[in-house]
């Protein structure tokens, strides 16, 4: 939370009013998946395994794209990739 509010300024009952897509959980990430598009066979295992639906296949460019607004850096994609095309790299400060 960048700007913290007092108890009189917030709605009751712990109500959260944003759509879940508006909470950018990508901020949590400490490791970033990096895709080697030359190795990638477009098998789409990573698309299926991603728990945050943060990986999409772009048919127009025939490539995998990771949405870093939501990717928490869990590393499931790198673990599951059958051709080891994804590596987890430490996020820079």
């Amino acid at each position: 939370m960048s700007e913290e509010k007092s108890w009189r300024e917030i709605p009751l009952g712990g109500l959260t009013w944003l759509h879940s897509s508006e909470y950018k959980t990508g901020e949590w990430r400490s490791f970033r998946p990096v895709v080697d598009h030359n190795k990638c066979t477009r098998c789409m295992q990573c698309v299926i395994y991603c728990p945050d639906i943060a990986i999409k296949y772009k048919p127009d460019v025939n490539m995998i794209e990771i949405n870093f607004d939501y990717c928490k850096g869990c590393g499931v994609c790198a673990e599951e990739c059958p051709v080891h095309a994804i590596t987890m790299v430490k996020e820079k400060e």
Binding site: W7, I10, L12
Partner: peptide, 23 residues
């Protein structure tokens, strides 16, 4: 669409309990 009962940690839980005390 709203979420009820979402996680509420060190930053806001205390404020919500203060609201209950006021109620």
């Amino acid at each position: 669409p709203v979420s009820m009962g979402a996680i509420d940690l060190q930053d806001y839980y205390f404020e919500h309990k203060r609201q209950q005390a006021e109620a």
